[in-house]
Design a binder for these strands. Structure first.
Lengths: 196, 196
DNA sequence: GTCTATATTTGGATAGAC
DNA sequence: GTCTATCCAAATATAGAC
């Protein structure tokens, strides 16, 4: 038999998380307050404690949801017989994911909430996503961890500048493909140097 | 005649700003409270209002100080007859400046304080610093604004990853020179393509 | 210029009635 | 599960005495 009570409870949890995400988009990650959140879903702040143990538990649930969503999209990006095209697609997925919700990006990537650390289970999908990138990078001809770090630095730098200095625009977004050309040329040159 | 009273006042202002910087290093930019700050300099929080109009005025003074300090160091880095060496040195100056005080980096570059925007006068040195970089970049053979944006994205990305994911270490710092090699090779290739 | 006193707001969280 | 009532803490800021 269906547990209608549990279904209702889960639906309310989801509703709370969606409202929290909306408030965070509006007021920033650190600007979330339980009072506002309660008001948004039509209950007192105290009643939220029936659904989440604490404010950090809400942040954690949002983090987990975001990390899972990004992993899902990364997996959906798929693998073809052209590793560089795959990698290129993966970076676009990352870029789009970050730009479509800068507040979520802040929570997932920059984590500027004093005292908040995601639980290991919530963090796990992020690790898996990075591992996906690593595998694609190896397939694309770079087996050095330095090159993975260089790539993550390059891409997050463009994302960061885009969000900080041209929100809503594409001043850095449109540099992404050129940056990847630059990056691929570089790892090719390294590989050539080695083989000589 | 010397204005001993004004000197004293200025000395106290400096003392307050130094204490604020120390507290920010300890508790993060958003974690600064006037109570703690007052305690640190031996006065009540309310008395700070004799020196600064508001908390944001303190942030603004810290921002201005940091921006001036970075401009000073950028200018001190000097100009030689080797533009690329100059540019390389300038990026190292930036990297060192950011790493030596990540909280200041947060305040100056990421500005995650809700509601705080630096005054135009405080921001001016930052604009001038970027202009210095632009001139060095032009001298180094890249006259396209896209290339300035690509460079700022690349460098801030490495800084960001270093601070976020390996605080106190050098995992991304040691990629800086390789990243610059990659970047210079790239702008050379573009220039070659143009001249053909 | 610094203090005491206080206003005001806001926040997270708990207890207990219903 | 939701509410009222409440607590407690922390924060920024103002008024006025000294």
């Amino acid at each position: 038999m269906r547990d209608r009570r549990a279904e209702r409870r889960e639906a309310t949890r989801v509703e709370i998380l969606e409202a929290a995400a909306a408030l965070i988009r509006e007021h920033g990650v650190a600007g979330l307050s339980l009072r506002d959140l309660g008001q948004k879903v039509g209950m007192r702040a105290q009643s939220l404690y029936s659904y989440f143990d604490s404010k950090d538990a809400i942040y954690d649930a949002l983090f987990a949801e975001g990390a899972r969503e990004f992993l899902r999209r990364s997996q959906d990006a798929g693998v073809s017989d052209d590793p560089r095209a795959d990698l290129r697609r993966a970076t676009h997925v990352f870029f789009d994911f970050c730009l479509e919700d800068p507040a979520r990006y802040q929570l997932l990537i920059q984590r500027p909430i004093p005292g908040f650390e995601p639980a290991p289970e919530s963090f796990a999908p992020s690790v898996e996503s990075l591992e996906l990138i690593r595998q694609r990078l190896v397939a694309a001809g770079a087996d050095d961890d330095r090159h993975l770090d260089l790539l993550t630095g390059l891409i997050t730098g463009l994302v960061d500048q885009q969000i900080s200095n041209d929100p809503g625009g594409d001043r850095w977004y449109r540099l992404l493909d050129e940056a990847l050309d630059m990056y691929f040329d570089h790892i090719d040159r390294i590989a050539k140097g080695r083989s000589r």
